[in-house]
Structure formats: C-alpha cells, structure tokens
C-alpha cells in the first residue's frame, strides 16, 4: 500500500473496446490499487451526446475522456471544458500526439490501412493508388465518413495529400466500393470474404488474424493517416490528481507495453511494435497540420458522399 496516496474514484468516458479497457484498468490497479476507475464505454457519438447533455445540465460527470481524435479534443479545449495537463514523461512521447498547449495527449497510433483476405487475394495492393486498379472493382469496402469520425478524418487527409487528392478519390469511386457503417463491419466483411479488400484501422486486422481469420494488413507506400485516441482531463473533475495518475499510466512504459500487446501501435519508441507491424521509424504517415484537416474536413466528406453514393 502506498501510504501517502488517498483513495479516489474517477469516471472514465471511452470508446476503447470493452475487453481492452478492462485490461487497462486491471493493469492500472496493480500499480494504483487506491484509485477506482468507473468506465462508461460507448461509441464516440454517444459519448459526445452524453457530454453535451451533461454540460447543458450543469457539469460533465466524467473525469477523463479517452476517445476519438485530436479534432474532438480541440473542440472541447476551445470551449474550456478541459483542464491543462502535460504527462510526466512527455519527453519520451511522440511529439506528433502531444497537444502543444498541453490539454491532451495521444495514447495510441491508430492508422488506417489496407486489409485483404488472404484466401482470395494473392497479390495484395501495396499502395492507395493500387486500389484504383479495375481488378478491385466491386471488391473493396470502407467505412462511412458520415458515421465514423476516423473515416471523415481520413477523407480530409487523402484529399489534401498531393499524390492522391480528388483525382484518386474519383478513380477509387469508379471501383464502386461498398460503404460499410464503420470499421468493425469492414474488418468482418474482409475476413469473411464478403468484400476481399478493405480500408480499415490496423489493430482490428491484427486481432482477427490472431484469432485465425484469413486476413492480413498492408501498409500503403504513400503513408497512412492516423488518429491518436487522445486522453484529457475535464475541467469539472473533482479528482484531477488521480486523473493525471491514470493518464500518466496510459502513456507510461507499462501502459504502452500493454497497448502493443493489445495490437496497437504505441506513442513512444521504447516499447516495440505489435507482431506484423513495421517499426515506428519505418512507418510512413500522412500527418498534415490539424488546422488544415479541420478546415477541409466538411468539404472532403461532402465530396466523398457525392462520389460514393
């Protein structure tokens, strides 16, 4: 027992898969048994709705938010909903995921990649450009940017990447991809062969492959867009110190080793990467400035809808 630590209970709002967040809390409690973490898990949209309803009625009921992307946190930051906090080990963390103003920090690198069914595809596509090849007509599936925040972010990044841009979107649309609701159904469709090629976040593919599905991941050569599942503390929190301890754990060495074990790419360089993933130094990323993405996102999603429906 840590003599100086006070017992505390914090409430966490997160979009992490239930099994994964359960494991994170269990590992956290091994180091900090004095802090109880109450988890409310829901999709990003449900969390947003809940947070909005709570603030219109007074104060946000959660202490920590672990979800979505930097843009969501920028929004909350702009509305003064977040408390400033920079993790103790900020120096060890990938500067790409640290908010320069110190209000939130990314906890995993979640890139969107190409997944393919290994029994149905012999030569996997190795670049975004490959997906426009007519041989993939009717065989591709991808998430709906109207529903998935990550997919909306991707659409903005693709359109603002010179090598891809609007022409690439048009060529891809010519292959008539099936627009699934979100990443989960995309991975499932690829694994079961409904659509042998998919555009999807990488950890889902590794999880399925580990369970025995005939699915593998290909990191496109042009680079991959990624979200960082940031964590931040709400300004209304009664337990800012316990909350900070939890975030320190998330981005600390133990927390990041667990993230790698859970198929995620980490936000620090000293914990390796999951099996089958490139080393962090070899990973080509598409990471345009956040302001640029925020500025073009609505137009990109509208263009996507126009081309793909």
């Amino acid at each position: 027992m840590v003599a100086t630590a006070d017992d505390a209970t914090i409430t966490l709002y997160t979009s992490e898969p239930q099994e994964k967040i359960d494991a994170v809390v269990a590992a956290f409690n091994e180091e900090h048994p004095e802090i109880t973490v109450e988890v409310f898990r829901a999709g990003t949209g449900d969390l947003t709705a809940r947070i909005e309803s709570e603030r219109t009625n007074g104060a946000v009921q959660a202490d920590v938010l672990l979800a979505a992307d930097a843009a969501t946190f920028e929004g909350y930051k702009g509305e003064d909903l977040l408390a400033p906090y920079t993790p103790t080990e900020a120096d060890a963390i990938n500067p790409d995921v640290l908010d320069p103003d110190g209000f939130y920090v990314g906890t995993r690198i979640i890139p969107t990649v190409i997944a393919y069914n290994t029994t149905m595809v012999d030569e996997p596509p190795t670049s975004w450009q490959d997906l426009t090849d007519p041989q993939y007509a009717g065989k591709i599936t991808m998430p709906n940017p109207d529903v998935s925040g990550a997919a909306a972010y991707n659409a903005a990044v693709w359109t603002s990447t010179p090598a891809l841009g609007d022409q690439w979107l048009q060529d891809l649309a010519a292959n008539e991809p099936v627009i699934a609701e979100s990443n989960g159904p995309v991975a499932q469709a690829v694994a079961s062969g409904t659509q042998p090629v998919g555009v999807v976040v990488d950890y889902l593919v590794r999880d399925l492959a580990a369970a025995g599905s005939p699915i593998a991941v290909s990191y496109p050569s042009e680079g991959v867009p990624f979200v960082a599942q940031p964590a931040g503390i709400f300004a209304d929190s009664d337990e800012p110190e316990a909350s900070a301890t939890f975030i320190d754990f998330l981005v600390g060495k133990t927390g990041q080793e667990l993230a790698v074990e859970q198929s995620y790419l980490p936000v620090r360089g000293d914990v390796g990467t999951p099996e089958g993933a490139p080393a962090m130094d070899d990973l080509a990323v598409l990471n345009p400035p956040l302001e640029e993405v925020s500025a073009t996102k609505d137009a990109a999603v509208a263009r996507f809808d126009e081309l793909f429906s």
Binding site: T44, T48, A49, E52, S53, G149, A152, D298, V301
Partner: peptide
C-alpha cells in the same frame, strides 16, 4: 449519423 459523426453542431 448526425449523432455519431461528431461533425454536426448541437447534435441533440
């Protein structure tokens, strides 16, 4: 879609 996308102002 409006509730989930997080891109709509005042989703409620």
């Amino acid at each position: 879609r409006y509730l989930q996308s997080g891109t709509v102002d005042a989703p409620l």
